Computed example of a mutant assay.
Amino acid sequence: MSLNDMSNNLTDIITRDLDFDEDKKEIIAYAIETSLLAILGTLLLILFALIVGALKAALISAVSGVLLRRFSGGAHFDSPTKCLVIGAIIYSALGVLGQKLAEFNLVSDYMLWISLAIALGIVWILAPVDSENKPIHSKKLKRNLRGLSIGVVLITFVISILSSNSLLSISMSLGVFYQSLTLLPIFNRRGGG
């Protein structure tokens, strides 16, 4: 049974005694499917990160990257399953990388700041990146999403300056830097916003 089928079945159960039209049922089914995907993605990330022994760093990278993605958009896979699996693998790998870089003190503050400056430049120029399935037509929405994306990068920059926890700074920076790379036209058919 696919997630779509599961969300439709749950919607039927939830709305059985309610007098909802098809539009309202579709909204509920979408919310259920989105929630199931988020839960499944989180569990998959936790599983992979536990396997490679980098749970904390992977979660930090994922939270910062996903927060940026929420506003910036970026590369899309052709199925949610691919997105979940590949995302869990990439963020687990970033967790391992962040953990090793922090453990062996291989990254200076300047390196973090340069990577975040590059991320800021990419976000400034390209965000938000929409998809063929969800194009962004409103100029005001594009401007707001770009501003929020820039804000996420700047907050990450401030945290990396103020934090004495190198694992936190490195993992956040890796998540934001990776997410900014997904905005590049090479990963998107439509290019930037």
Rank of each mutant, 00 (worst) to 15 (best):
F157H: 15
T81I: 06
I170G: 00
S163N: 02
I90V: 01
N144A: 12
V63G: 07
G193H: 06
I114V: 05
V152C: 09
F48S: 05
I27V: 10
A58I: 00
M1G: 10
Q179P: 01
D5Q: 14
R69K: 09
G191D: 00
K56E: 15
K142W: 10
S92C: 13
S7R: 05
I136R: 11
L154C: 14
T15M: 06
V152Y: 01
L40F: 06
L120M: 09
S164A: 14
I90R: 10
L18V: 09
I46P: 15
P80G: 12
G192E: 00
L184S: 08
V129D: 04
I136S: 13
L145Q: 15
E26H: 10
I27M: 03
T34L: 15
P135G: 02
A49I: 06
L116H: 04
R190Y: 01
W124M: 09
G41N: 05
Y178A: 00
Q179T: 01
N8G: 04
G65A: 04
S163Y: 06
S131C: 13
N105M: 00
A29K: 03
K25I: 01
M111H: 09
P185T: 05
F177T: 11
A62Y: 08
L10S: 00
R189Q: 12
A49G: 13
F48N: 07
T11Y: 00
A127D: 03
I51D: 11
I136C: 02
G74I: 15
K25R: 08
L116P: 09
I39E: 11
I51E: 10
M111G: 14
D19H: 12
G193K: 08
L18K: 13
I39A: 13
L97I: 05
K140P: 14
A127I: 02
L59G: 13
G121V: 06
K56S: 05
L84D: 04
A93D: 13
V85N: 01
I90C: 03
T182S: 14
I32C: 10
A54L: 10
D19R: 04
Q179K: 05
L43R: 03
A75R: 10
G95I: 02
G193F: 08
I32K: 02
E26D: 11
K82D: 11
I28G: 06
I89W: 08
T42F: 05
V176Y: 05
P135C: 07
S173D: 06
I60D: 08
M1A: 01
S115R: 01
K140T: 14
A31Q: 08
K24Q: 09
S138W: 15
G147F: 14
H137Y: 11
G151W: 06
N105T: 04
S138T: 15
G98L: 00
P128C: 12
H137Q: 09
S115H: 10
P128F: 03
A117E: 06
Y110D: 07
L97T: 11
L126C: 10
F20N: 08
N133Y: 13
V63I: 12
G95S: 04
V158C: 08
G175A: 12
L183K: 00
L126P: 13
G41T: 12
S2D: 00
L116I: 11
D21I: 13
R69S: 01
L162K: 12
M172I: 05
R69Y: 04
L116Y: 14
E103Q: 07
L174A: 03
S92V: 11
